[in-house]
Design a protein around this nucleic acid. Structure first.
Lengths: 241, 241
DNA sequence: TTCGTTAGAGTCATTCTGACATTAAGTGTC
DNA sequence: GACACTTAATGTCAGAATGACTCTAACGAA
């Protein structure tokens, strides 16, 4: 993030089009401790340049002339955090005049999901860290990034089809209890295990495998697999990024 | 649309940030003739400059440095068509590299609704015209505007809350039959009048008035009013545009 | 072997939904 | 004025979906 192509300094860019950037809200799931509920969490990067140097911000960067918007989101994410999420979806474009104190900045916000394995493998240092969504440190982020995070959570909770979303927060195979934990973290309330099982069996996007999860304390649960249909019309394929 | 501030020509803008524009899909409702179902329709403007000169396109224009994105959508809409819709919502941002043959163009698409009175009062000339969404002329639009229209229709059909949307396509007061016509046009299928009435009574966002619509051929229907709650977190207020 | 815990299936009452019947209230025709 | 016709509005009923709950199965730990 030291030399930023495409972003001229304030004086140079009078009368030029707005600077264009992408930022990504990356959500992952973290197991609750002491049997508590699972929690949604996300990685933030510390800003090392003005404006808002020192504050935590969403990972992102400027849009390169040679890449599409989705590609820019995927690339800038890999550059700043090393993460390559399995799901990437455009969220909203923020372009109020005064959202940056130094220049006119239009940000296309993306929304990404990471499965549990990827969350665990993340390297953290003093400039990249994970926060629970209810962490007090989340109160003050750079720019209007707090607003962007809130909007991402609102969208997640109002998704009509959780199937896709939930399975992308887990691995390829998962137990129904783990899937229920994801739903509970998103919705913020407990669900009845029996009814949850029945409902999912009717959706036909979840398929039982013949494998069971061994090594637990109690009766080993069956593993399931997601067999959902095609993506939304404008969903991003992160493998192209 | 003759002199477009902010858009340099192709040679000038090598190595500059992408050009930023807004385009708006404005949907209105038109009564079906011969008792047929109501139809969704939208206004298009004919392009008078390259690229794609002569083709029909969504109304829009570049984003001015002094206005927010929503304001740019509202203003460019008034400039090109004279329309001032009662509802404006951001749809999606399109930024593929090759979506314009002459330059890198990022378009923030908006989605607007007009009520029946506003549709009727629109002036049409050879460069501004309304089309039914199933009109064959809609097959070839400038840029990727056909894709934008399709996405707007998909979003409209998948809205969880039709209440707001439907009432903005009608006037302040409306009959249940008119509201049902809007739903049928959006969903593309007939609905049972009795069940439709029952469902709406349970939503509590529609309120009966003491007025009746006179002048019809048959039993005069009661007029209803929309009393919905607040807007979505990021909904645009078009009165600010 | 017993106990504690989770997996998974089943029961039952309530609510929601689609299909359809019935009554109410106006206009136009003879 | 009687009648047919059309739409408005309410009611009924069966099947599906939902929430709360019970019961049995299968493991590890003691």
């Amino acid at each position: 993030m030291s030399s930023v192509p495409g972003w001229a300094n304030v004086n140079e860019r009078r009368n030029l089009p707005p600077a264009l950037a992408v930022s990504t809200v990356i959500l992952g799931i973290r197991e609750g401790h002491d049997g508590g509920p699972d929690k949604l969490c996300l990685p933030l990067v510390r800003r090392i340049r003005q404006p808002h140097a020192g504050l935590w911000a969403l990972p992102g960067g400027p849009v390169d002339a040679s890449e599409s918007l989705g590609q820019a989101a995927g690339r800038s994410l890999a550059d700043t955090t090393g993460l390559r999420p399995s799901y990437l979806e455009q969220l909203y474009t923020f372009g109020d005049i005064d959202r940056s104190p130094t220049h006119r900045l239009v940000t296309i916000a993306y929304f990404a999901l990471l499965n549990a394995d990827q969350v665990g493998a993340t390297v953290q240092d003093e400039n990249v860290a994970w926060f629970d969504i209810d962490d007090p440190n989340m109160a003050q982020l750079a720019f209007d990034h707090r607003k962007i995070v809130d909007y991402a959570l609102w969208r997640l909770r109002n998704k009509t089809e959780y199937g896709q979303i939930a399975h992308r927060l887990l691995g390829e195979r998962f137990t129904l209890a783990a899937l229920r934990g994801v739903y509970e973290a998103i919705l913020g309330r407990r669900l009845d295990p029996a009814n949850f099982r029945r409902t999912l069996k009717n959706t036909a996007t979840i398929e039982a495998t013949e494998e069971y999860l061994a090594g637990g304390q109690h009766r080993p649960p069956r593993l399931y697999r997601y067999v959902g249909h095609g993506p939304d019309p404008l969903e991003v394929d992160p493998s192209q990024g």
